[in-house]
Simulated scan of single mutants.
Amino acid sequence: MDSADIDGYTGPWIQFENESKSAKPSAEEMEEIEAFMAKKKRFGKKTEKEELEERATIHIEDVYDYQGRSFLHSPHDLDVSLKADYTPNKCFLPKRVIHTYTGHSKALTAIRWFPRSAHLFLSCSMDSKIKLWEVYKERRCVITYMGHKQAVRDINFNRKGDRFISCGYDRYMKLWDTETGQCIKRFTNRKVAYCVKFNTDEERSHLFISGMSDKKIICWDTRSGSIVQEYDRHLGAINTVTFVDNNRKFVSTADDKSIRVWEWDIPVDVKYIAEPHMHAIPAVTPAPNGKWLACQSMDNKIQAFACMNRFKLNQKKVFTGHMVAGYACSPDFSPDMSYLISGDADGKVFIWDWKTTKLLNTFQAHDNVCISTLWHPHETSKVLTAGWDNNVKLWD
């Protein structure tokens, strides 16, 4: 360490005695690293082959009738007209269960009528399967669609019913052919979609929108598989998206406890509703006449919003009595607009008078949460309920 010794001076950077410069991990550290890498590989990106495992099982023999029409064709030999413009004059309260559809092994998440005729309905469940059922005659399960790796969150038919879109917690949205069960396309932006809706306009029937967990509403094109528009103004995960005003506008609700109204294809909201007393709205149903929205609020109320020209809350139409806090129980209207129906967290079904908001009837429908209720659009008193006891029930 003598600085006068010019050749032998090492300064402060000299090595320690017996110092080793190799940075190889020890045997213990090596074991840890290998275990971590094996785990990463197991949960890492799936191979292409694993992802392409969509399939469907058809459960009925008579897929085509004597005229070559498939099961998607609505039957004509019933005592009720299934034409699109037919609505019954007077509806009545359902009294008893006439059929129980069993087949799902876990809780149901959504049920949807086949568009226009409603002679079939689609159900999706936490067992990651989607099933199509008959409403009339033998009431069989027609076809089971399997393609999601995790629970299916939402399903929606296009305007004709020959295709439908599904979204699941595996972060995929899939477009299916209803009749053959073939998966036509997959869509993903690596986020979970909480709701999907097709645009039912003739020119825009190839577009659908999805409400995502990353606060965005995304419009997709089913022909190219690409994103067409993003609506990015909410401050929380999107819960529902509902078309109003002949599909010229749509309404979205989110976890930020607000409601936003959008013009189609304009990514800035035209109306924003958020009051200090408002709660999150996890389920919204439009009325058959297109003038009202029934919004299931987390404070155990259903509130009615007028959605014709000025979008505003009707203070007088508030429906209470049921317990839905924490669940997205979707309500529904009777086709003649005289009743409003909803399930609740205890598995009961509640029916209110739409004009007076008076509670008319309650009955126990399921052993667990009754997550969805649907009133048949052409029948006077047929109601479909789906519960977390894995069953769908048809009431009359």
Rank of each mutant, 00 (worst) to 15 (best):
K348V: 13
K160E: 15
N18P: 10
K257T: 13
V196F: 06
D2Q: 01
V369D: 04
G147T: 08
L359R: 04
F164S: 07
L175N: 03
L235W: 00
P335W: 03
S125V: 06
E138S: 12
R163F: 11
N391I: 09
V63A: 05
D221P: 02
G103M: 04
I302H: 00
Y9S: 02
M146N: 08
I58Q: 04
T109S: 12
F305D: 04
R153F: 01
Y339K: 09
A306H: 12
A118Q: 01
R163C: 12
W133E: 07
P377I: 14
R204M: 13
D170A: 08
L384C: 05
A38M: 14
Y327D: 07
T320N: 01
I111V: 15
W292L: 14
N239H: 11
A27H: 12
T320K: 07
I302C: 02
D255I: 07
E379C: 10
L120N: 05
D65Q: 07
T357W: 00
S381L: 02
F114C: 07
E29R: 11
T242S: 06
V270I: 15
G161F: 06
K49D: 15
Y194F: 01
R96T: 13
N156Y: 14
R260S: 07
R260C: 10
K90A: 11
W113H: 02
N361T: 13
L235K: 10
K24Y: 14
C307A: 10
Q182G: 13
F319R: 02
G236C: 06
D177T: 06
L108V: 11
K185N: 14
F319V: 09
Y86F: 12
W292C: 05
A294E: 03
D221T: 10
K358F: 04
R204P: 00
T47W: 00
S81V: 15
A193H: 00
D77N: 11
G211T: 06
G236S: 10
M278S: 05
K393E: 07
K216D: 06
E34L: 15
F121M: 03
C295N: 04
E31T: 13
I165S: 00
P115C: 14
I143G: 07
I371Y: 00
Y136D: 03
T144I: 08
S338L: 12
E179N: 08
M308H: 08
